Simulated scan of single mutants.
Amino acid sequence: MGNFVDTCRECWFCLNGMEHYCPKIIVTYNGLDKAGEPTYGGYARSIVVDENYLVRIPDGLDLAAAVPLMCAGIAVYSPLRRFDVGPGTKIGILGVGGLDHLAVKFADALGAEVTALSQTTSKKEDALAFGADDFRTTTDPATFLERAGYFDIIRCAVSAALNFDQLLSLVRFDGTFVNLGAPDGPVSIGMFSLIRSRISFTSSSIGSIAETQEMLRCCVEHDIVSEIETLSAERINDALDTLRQVGGGNVRYRYVIDTSTI
């Protein structure tokens, strides 16, 4: 463990506040901890944590609703801050799901003009209530005519093989498409879709500890939490069956387990 710590003290990522990209720290999603032991997930009753990887939940945040902020929240907050989303920014949020509903809330809080983009209108009222200024469907050809070259940024967390060429037509000259989604199979992007308007296609993972603490302060300031459904331990398998059978699209918007029932 000592060698691991010494190495990471010299790691460029860790020294520059980007420890979440350090190739030596993979401690979630069935990874290994510093001692080489398997990590265990959210069903644990207790856990030992390095103090350098703790954040303080500010007073005023409901603990249950704050839980998804540690993953979904920071995953969408980090690219918004990285690309200086704020007043004057026209941003398209692709999808209205577990990550996306928080992206709409954060982008609105940061002062951007927010458009929610979704395949159907089933979550239109929710998206507008979360702070979206406009709602457009990606199945309507009028969206691509009326919003061609409109957005400074499109942020996508959809894990599916989308028609990226069509979506890129919505991005302005020198705009940015930020992808967080991870489809199982290959995706296709025509290079001319990027070249014709000098568009940047980039990606993002999660966020640093410092950035997570900043995000939590933003949540308190703007009264932002995740929309959740709290589950007892006995309902976990039912929830997993729901996700397998109908996908996450019908969950509004995150399941949270009450660990006192484990």
Rank of each mutant, 00 (worst) to 15 (best):
Q213W: 15
S205V: 11
A132N: 01
G175N: 14
M191E: 00
T242G: 02
I74E: 00
F201W: 13
L110W: 13
Y77Q: 08
R172H: 13
L167H: 14
A35F: 14
D134S: 02
S204E: 02
F13K: 07
Y255P: 02
L243K: 05
T259H: 10
V114F: 07
C11I: 06
F83G: 01
D174F: 14
V49E: 06
A182M: 14
L128G: 03
F106G: 00
C22R: 14
R155G: 03
L110D: 09
L63K: 15
K105D: 01
I199V: 12
D174H: 15
N30G: 06
D140Q: 10
Y255F: 15
K123Y: 08
A75E: 01
G111V: 05
K105T: 02
I236R: 04
A64E: 03
L170H: 09
I189V: 12
E19N: 04
S205E: 02
E234V: 13
S205C: 09
D165N: 12
I262M: 11
A44T: 15
V246P: 00
S159W: 14
N163P: 08
S118W: 06
F144G: 03
V96K: 01
D258R: 14
G95M: 10
T143N: 00
L102C: 04
R254H: 06
D152R: 13
R217S: 04
T115Q: 07
E227N: 14
F106Y: 13
V85N: 10
V67L: 00
R82W: 01
E211C: 10
I93W: 08
V27E: 15
A109T: 11
C14V: 15
P186G: 02
S46L: 08
S205M: 12
G111L: 04
V49L: 07
A160F: 14
R217W: 01
S208I: 12
S118K: 12
S169G: 03
D6S: 11
E229W: 06
T137W: 15
D108A: 12
L61K: 12
P183C: 05
Y53A: 00
F201Q: 05
G86T: 13
K34S: 13
Q119N: 09
T259W: 10
C219Y: 11
D59G: 12
V187Y: 04
I224A: 08
G95R: 15
R82C: 02
A161E: 03
I189Y: 08
R198P: 03
G73M: 07
A66R: 12
F13V: 09
G98P: 10
A64H: 09
E37D: 15
S204C: 02
G97A: 00
W12C: 02
I26T: 02
G95A: 09
C22G: 07
G31L: 01
F130H: 03
A160Q: 06
E214N: 03
T89M: 03
G190T: 15
G248C: 06
D152K: 00
R147C: 11
C156Y: 07
G181M: 07
D33G: 07
E37L: 15
S197G: 07
A103N: 02
A161L: 05
T176P: 04
V251Q: 06
A112F: 12
P79S: 09
F201D: 00
V55E: 00
I91Y: 10
A103P: 07
